[in-house]
Amino acid sequence: MEMLVRAFVLGGLICVIGQLLMDLTPFHITPAHILVGYVTTGVVLSALGLYQPLVDWGGAGATVPLSGFGHSLAQGAIRGVESKGLLGALGGGIEATSVGVAAAIVFGLVAATFFQPKA
């Protein structure tokens, strides 16, 4: 139960940062910029060892935002290096996130095929 509350709070706060970036900075920030920014920030934080504590504390609150995707990429790359050396640095990130990416491609394709945009 406590974990649910933490997930809610942490997840909410991570989203709030994005909202503040969109509303309070003079730049024209699109959803694509937000998503790219979160993934790369997630990778960097994770590499510095700052993201794992968030995951430990807030669970899905840290893994569901796209920065969690970055975390998986970074941890994958690090584990890849540990098991396969230099080659692992190239493949590790994608390996670790392959399920999510494949799911996005398949579900995306299926949804786009069967639904019509409504506006």
Binding site: A32, L35, V36, V39, T40, G42, V43, V44, S46, A47, L66, F69, G70, L73, A74, G76, A77, I78, G80, V81, G85, L86, G88, A89, L90, G92, G93, I94, T97, V101
Partner: peptide, 17 residues
């Protein structure tokens, strides 16, 4: 998202290596 995420993760891997 995938391009920059992967690119930075590869850099992280290289640095770690």
């Amino acid at each position: 998202v995938i391009v920059y995420g992967t690119l930075v993760s590869i850099l992280v891997g290289l640095i770690y290596f």
